[in-house]
Each structure stands twice: as C-alpha cells, then as structure tokens.
Computed example of a mutant assay.
Amino acid sequence: MAKQNTNEKEMSFLDHLEDLRWHLIRITVSILICATVAFIFSGFIFENIIFAPKRMTFPTYQWLCDVSTMVGVDDSTFCAAEFPFRIQNRTVAGQFSADIWTSIYAGFILAFPYIIYQFWRFISPGLHASERRHSRGFIFASSFLFFLGVLFGYYIVTPLTINFLGNYIVSAEVSNEFDLSSYISTVRSSSIAAGFIFELPIVVYFLTKIGLVTPKIMRKYRKFALVLVLILAAIITPPDIASQVIVAIPILILYQVSIYISKVVVRNQNKKQNINV
C-alpha cells in the first residue's frame, strides 16, 4: 500500500468539500482569465474562427470540392461562390451577449488542460503513489483528445452541418436568414460536443479502474455500441449518409482504442494481484 500523508488520511467529508471548493474556484478563475483574453481578441475570433465556416474558402469546403471534382461529381454545394444565407441579429443586446458567451466558451477550451489538472489534484490523494506518477500522462492525453475532438468538430462536423442547413430550402419563397445566436450555437455545440466525445478512452480507463467496465463487456456489446454511435452521429450531423459515416468512423476507432485501454488496465490489475498473493 502506498504511503500517504497524514493530513490526506485524516481528511473528513467537510475537508473534502472545502478542498473541492478551492479547486472549483481555481477552475473558475482560470476560465475567467482565458475568457478575458478571448474577449480582448474577440474581433479575430469572430472573423477568423466563428464566421470562417460560413465562407466557401474554408479548407473543408475546398477539400470536398476537390474530391467531388476528382471523382467526377458536379457538387455545387461545395464548389459554390458563397452560401445562400445571411446572419443577422434580432435582439438589442444580441451581439454583446454573443461576444460575452463566445469569450466564456473560448476561455473554457483554452483552460481545459488546467481544468483537468485541478480535477486530477482533487482525486489524486485517494490513489496509489504508482498511479500518481502517471498524472502528467493523464493530463496530456485528456487535453490532446479534447483538442483533437474540438478540431474534428470544427473542421468536419460544423462545416457539414452549415453546408447542409445553409443550402436546405423548402421553397424559393423562403430565404434563409439565420439568427446570430443560432449560428454561434451550431459552431459551439458541434466543436465542444466532439471534444467531449473524444474523451471516451479516458472515461473507459476510469470505469475499468473501478470495475464497472471490462474488455469482455465492451466486446460483447460492440454491436450495440455501433448502433449507438450511428444514432449519435445522426444527432450531431445533418441527415445524410456521407456526413454520418464521416463522423461515425473516428468514434468507432475511439471505441476500439478504449477496448485496448481497458484490456491493459485489467492486465495490470491482475499482475498486481498476483504479486500481492
């Protein structure tokens, strides 16, 4: 058994709550600091990040246009000059609110490694010394997967969604004029949701550690997981097969990676039990 500090052993429930409170305070302060920086550079964020998927010069559209041209498909939706919709603000404080909330969410994304670090600091006293030594790897892996998911959501899910909904019409009598908050919500939810989805291997790691998940269970329910992945892809993407397949593939890869991680965790636990015996 790893040797722990006396104060860590003697912490009461109220002490844990006090410790959690300070971790939450540090997390909040870090988000606010990053949000302030994002607010200062909000002009750059809106012009070059938020509204970039609205322009046909966005890299994803250029790539899809090249692919469709290469295979001989005349796809005007990806090779058009511009989207047939406008973004407008309908409320008095709409643009100010959009600026504030965009800065806060940007602050959360920027502060994510520190948030994970604080989370690890809170749970690490209850772990063995050997498990604590992997803290840096945990923080790096969690942050890497989250940022990778955000990029996937921004460069894949977001443009596919905007392209589909921006070109979708029920009649020529109706013009698409999207509200500012609705457009930003689409970009934000697609990116951040993908970031959390990419945390699946980390979640499986902890669930395996506490015995709720095993590689055998994950293999047994792989078919059900496939169905859930397709449903999830259908929820976060436009209702077309190509978009759903593009989103489903990396999630299925993450699921397979999670099975391997669960297998490694179980194998290490079995080795420790054999050593103790």
Results as ranks from 00 to 15, higher is better:
Thr158Ser: 13
Ser42Arg: 10
Ala106Ser: 11
Ser181Asn: 12
Ile251Ala: 04
Ala242Gln: 12
Ile45Met: 01
Met56His: 08
Val37Met: 11
Pro53Val: 01
Ile197Val: 14
Ile104Trp: 15
Ile261Trp: 03
Ser182Arg: 04
Tyr155Met: 07
Thr28Ile: 14
Arg133Asp: 13
Tyr154Arg: 04
Phe108His: 00
Ile217Phe: 15
Ile109Asn: 03
Pro84Trp: 05
Asp15Asn: 08
Thr60Ala: 09
His128Gly: 11
Val227Tyr: 10
Tyr168Val: 07
Leu151Lys: 02
Lys220Val: 00
Asn89Gly: 15
Ala35Trp: 06
Ala93Ile: 15
Phe147Glu: 08
Ile115Leu: 15
Ala129His: 06
Ser181His: 09
Thr28Arg: 10
Thr237His: 01
Trp22Phe: 14
Phe39Trp: 13
Lys223Ile: 11
Arg21Cys: 02
Ser143Pro: 05
Ile31Glu: 08
Tyr205Leu: 13
Ile251Val: 15
His134Glu: 08
Ile202Trp: 07
Ile197Asp: 02
Ala225Leu: 09
Asn167Pro: 07
Ile197Lys: 02
Leu230Gly: 04
Asn89His: 14
Thr36Phe: 12
Arg86Ser: 11
Ser191Glu: 01
Pro250Glu: 08
Val187Lys: 04
Tyr61Gln: 13
Leu14Asn: 05
Ile162Gly: 01
Phe58His: 11
Leu180Ser: 03
Asn270Thr: 07
Gln269Asp: 10
Arg90Ile: 15
Ala106Phe: 10
Ser171Glu: 06
Val67Lys: 12
Thr36Trp: 06
Asn276Ile: 15
Val67Gln: 14
Val71Asn: 10
Met70Asn: 13
Val265Cys: 10
Lys3Arg: 04
Leu230Ile: 14
Lys263Glu: 06
Val266Asp: 02
Ile139Asn: 08
Leu160Cys: 00
Phe147Met: 14
Glu199His: 03
Leu17Arg: 03
Gln95Cys: 01
Ser190His: 06
